[in-house]
Design a protein around this nucleic acid. Structure first.
Length: 864
RNA sequence: GGGCGAUUGGCUCAGUGGUAGAGCGCCUCGUUCACACCGAGGAGGUCACUGGUUCGAACCCAGUAUCGCCCA
């Protein structure tokens, strides 16, 4: 028996037989729907995908066998920066939206990888050409993902797959946005926001990553009435943007300064000294310069202390080319003239030199590690610039109409997290939000913000009166489509219109996967059968993004949770207990892994890890899974081999034929396993269910199969007799047990169990009902499951004698006194003949005594 | 600095109040009669540490240490 080739064979069979096809005639209460996070196809496949998606598939298969019609679609997340960057490198191009479309464009490269093509060498192409290349590349990526998922055995209905960039997704995302806008949940604002200089785009709070960033503390003197006031700053180039000095209200050192003003060095701008609790007394000098804007604390001070706006850093990361009007001294204006247009980095050097020359720098700069905000995909610290962007309310800012934060916290309580402690990550995130959700992105490959703006007669864009399309026309592209009531030639001219040039944040689409997959507003019949969904599986890292944003959209649009359960998978750790990642070079190709060990084996490893718990990448665990899968094949072949004539069929499942005590005891134990495994799976604890089943299965193979072997053959050992009824009992019990065990193992080992099922049963095990303990209990009668265990221990004692005598297990025991704990005697006596047969121990005397475990007191061995 | 989780035999992990468990690895044997991608037997742990609660603690409580993740 071999596992080779099972994956390809059964994947083809399941596709052909539509085993996992969703039956959309079923009603919501009969359906179990899963909102699988669509993987980012341009990202690389890694072991973590295999791990967490296996967890989901185990749930899907279990629920399907429980009789629920499982809605389990798969989507691909294509849009956004990862794809754009990959396209730039792969084809050697970059997007320039000002260029016209070239229908005959051929990319200069094909298959470039990494950072091999410098941006200077990238060919500028139109937005439409660029998007076409994005689409071309993602098709290839999707093929690889689907092949992997099929190989892994995910029971997905592939006819329901979607892409977060396809027309339907764009329509859903735009419609949901327009609904948000109409209800006042979406708004535009001119506000300070985080800006990535490299990617030239705004960045949302959820995309932030705080990283250590080397810098220097510069001790700088401001001019005060009673002498210099020293502050320490890592960003002296922002001194021209200073609007106040801020210290903690309780800080003794600065009490006398509150309410006074000081003068900035070099630029001579007079600013107030103010008190605010966000100032940290033990950090630097304890008094900070507030600029517009150096960091997020500056934004808070600016807002709460009503400070003026004096920005000097532009979107390109350079200081403004014009000298600001608030700098009035001649020396100050002259110095700024030298800084104008410089990057923040070279401006910093120039300012430090000037401070040194003027004597306002106290000592030399001291190296420090500070935390700076980065875009999670960027490598330069973010700047804070003021710009006009679109936001969706998420409870992060006060809203006079509703207490959205409280409502969303309530949704968090309503949602069943598995494991439950993951809920606090949601609560911490929602509780700590300090702004609404910025959704505008200045990128190209994504869903366009579906709005135009009028251009006034004097050529100004009127952002306050956006023009929305009719819902029936969605999806639209405002850069090529024309708003109602206008003609194409009015684009960009006075009295005409302009389209919003931005796209939406990736999450603004991805947060709608239940709606996209479920057919919201284009297949309401389907939507009513699957929404709200039952399960959202995902990683703990995206609770604050994917999970939260999806809850926001569903709450706003439908007034409900998007799903009832959230199953959170842990990380994969390498042998050094570090998170596996590409940069560490310790990732393994998932397809190679599946080919090497077999899909059932890899699934076993994944299913052995509980939800929420990090798991070691352990090849050893996969080998155990492989051994288990092979054992399923071999033990099944053996159990089905009795009785000749090609083995038993479903007719062998005759509970009434089970009359022997040992057989009944085994079924009683199996009934317990069914009950407890079912309970565990209902509680989203697939690991416990697997452990229970697996433990029983090994006992079944090692002890029960050995104990009933002879009886099932119908061949009695010497000195014993076997009745036809006793043989029939063994065969029926084997068939019943195998039937049950295959179903219990099917969610974890879909290939091996399906293979065995096909030998003797009709249809697919994956559409067979989940086992029920009741019929097993009926067949077991009043048998005590401990009888199998006691018999197994008795057999082990006989084996030990042979093992210690270093003889074959086939060696007959001519005479032996087997001592069992007195409390076990009544259990072993009725099954003593099975023990005698399995131990080749014709002359076995059984006694009870006060012993810890069964042992052989005296014996005489024969010849093998 | 705050939050969450973890710490059990060489390794990976179960075990949530009543005499320490599994698999792998290791040691000793056996075997091709379902399974060598095999079988049997065996050795191996003061359950991170310190206090406390309890008749009794790996488990409950308090604190400490180390590791991981998330947020400042």
């Amino acid at each position: 028996m071999s596992l080779e080739g099972l994956e390809a064979r059964w994947d083809a069979a399941w596709t052909e037989q539509r085993t996992y096809a969703f039956d959309r005639t079923r009603t919501r209460d009969e359906v179990y729907s899963i909102d699988t996070p669509p993987p980012t196809v341009s990202g690389s496949l890694h072991v973590g995908h295999v791990f967490s998606y296996t967890h989901t598939d185990v749930v899907a298969r279990y629920q399907r066998m429980r009789g629920r019609e499982v809605f389990y679609p798969m989507g691909w997340d294509d849009n956004g920066l990862p794809t754009e960057r990959r396209v730039q490198n792969y084809y050697g191009v970059r997007c320039d939206p000002s260029l016209p479309y070239d229908p005959d464009f051929t990319p200069p490269h094909e298959g470039g990888e990494g950072k091999s093509i410098k941006s200077a060498d990238q060919v500028p192409i139109s937005r439409r050409n660029f998007v076409e290349l994005c689409e071309r590349l993602t098709v290839e990526d999707e093929r690889q993902f689907e092949a992997l998922w099929r190989r892994l055995g995910l029971s997905v209905d592939w006819s329901h797959h979607y892409q977060t960039i396809d027309a339907r997704s764009r329509a859903v995302a735009q419609k949901a946005f327009l609904r948000n806008l109409a209800r006042g949940e979406a708004y535009q604002a001119e506000a300070p926001g985080l800006w990535d200089v490299t990617f030239q785009t705004a960045v949302a709070q959820a995309e932030l990553e705080a990283r250590d960033y080397p810098g220097h503390f510069h001790r700088v003197a401001f001019g005060g009435a009673d002498g210099p006031v020293h502050i320490e700053t890592t960003r002296p180039e922002l001194i021209p943007a200073v609007v106040a000095l801020v210290a903690h209200p309780d800080d003794e050192r600065y009490q006398h300064l509150f309410g006074t003003t000081v003068t900035s060095p070099l630029f001579g701008v007079e600013v107030p000294v103010l008190a605010h609790p966000a100032a940290e007394p033990d950090k630097g000098a304890g008094i900070a310069m507030c600029c517009t804007f150096g960091d997020l604390t500056d934004v808070q001070w600016w807002r709460e202390l009503q400070l003026p706006t004096r920005s000097v850093v532009q979107r390109d990361g350079r200081l403004s080319r014009e000298t600001p009007e608030w700098i009035t001294t001649e020396a100050g204006r002259a110095l700024f003239g030298e800084l104008a247009g410089k990057t923040t980095f070279s401006a910093r050097t120039a300012v430090v030199d000037a401070l040194r020359a003027s004597g306002d720098l106290d000592g030399e700069p001291v190296p420090t590690q500070r935390k700076a905000n980065f875009f999670e995909k960027g490598d330069k610290p973010l700047e804070i610039v003021t710009s006009r962007q679109w936001y969706i309310r998420n409870g992060g800012r006060e809203w006079e109409q509703r207490d959205l934060r409280a409502e969303l916290l309530g949704r968090g309580e309503e949602l069943a997290f598995h494991p439950d402690f993951m809920r606090v990550r949601y609560e911490n995130w929602v509780g700590g939000l300090n702004g609404d959700w910025l959704i505008s992105r200045q990128r190209f490959f994504g869903v366009a913000i579906p709005l135009w703006y009028p251009v006034t007669a004097d050529g100004e864009v009127d952002h306050d009166h956006p023009i929305a399309p009719d819902e029936a026309t969605l999806p639209i592209d405002p850069s090529s489509d024309v708003p109602p009531g206008y003609t194409a030639d009015q684009r960009g001219v006075p009295g005409g219109f302009v389209g919003d040039a931005d796209i939406m944040d990736t999450w603004a689409t991805s947060s709608l996967t239940p709606q996209i997959a479920g057919g919201w507003e284009w297949d309401d019949d389907l939507f009513a059968r699957v929404f709200p969904m039952d399960l959202r599986p995902q990683g703990q890292d995206i609770i604050r993004t994917w999970l939260f944003s999806t809850v926001v959209r569903s709450h706003l649009e439908h007034g409900s949770l998007p799903w009832r359960h959230a199953a959170i998978s842990g990380w994969i750790l390498d042998p050094d207990r570090k998170k596996m990642s590409k940069s560490k070079g310790n990732v393994v190709t998932p397809m190679g892994l599946l080919e090497e060990h077999g899909s059932d084996a890899v699934r076993y490893w994944a299913a052995s890890a509980r939800l929420g718990t990090d798991a070691a990448f352990e090849v050893g665990q996969m080998k155990i899974g492989r051994r288990l899968a092979i054992k399923v094949l071999n033990a099944s072949k053996f159990a089905l081999s009795f009785g000749g004539d090609g083995g038993p069929t479903a007719q062998a499942l005759d509970a009434a034929a089970v009359t022997e005590v040992l057989d009944r005891a085994m079924l009683a134990g199996l009934a317990d396993v069914v009950e407890r495994a079912t309970e565990a799976l209902e509680a989203y604890d697939h690991t416990r269910a697997l452990e229970l089943t697996e433990t029983f299965f090994w006992t079944f193979c090692d002890d029960y199969l050995e104990l009933v072997k002879d009886r099932a053959y119908g061949a009695a050992a010497e000195g014993l007799t076997v009745s036809p009824e006793a043989t029939a009992s063994a065969r029926a019990a084997l068939a019943l047990a195998l039937d049950t065990l295959l179903r219990l193992l099917a969610p974890v080992l879909p290939f091996a169990t399906e293979e065995v099922w096909s030998w003797w049963r009709e249809g697919s095990v994956h559409r067979a009902p989940w086992p029920d303990a009741a019929p097993l209990r009926a067949a077991a009668g009043d048998a005590d499951p401990a009888a199998l265990d006691a018999a197994g221990r008795a057999l082990a004692a006989l084996r030990k004698v042979k093992s210690e005598a270093k003889v074959s297990m086939r060696t007959p025991i001519l005479r032996a006194e087997l001592v069992v704990p007195s409390v076990h005697l009544a259990l072993v006596e009725p099954v003593a003949d099975d023990v005698r047969a399995a131990g080749r121990a014709q002359g076995l005397t059984l006694v009870g005594d006060d012993v810890e475990a069964a042992l052989v007191r005296s014996h005489e061995l024969g010849e093998a």
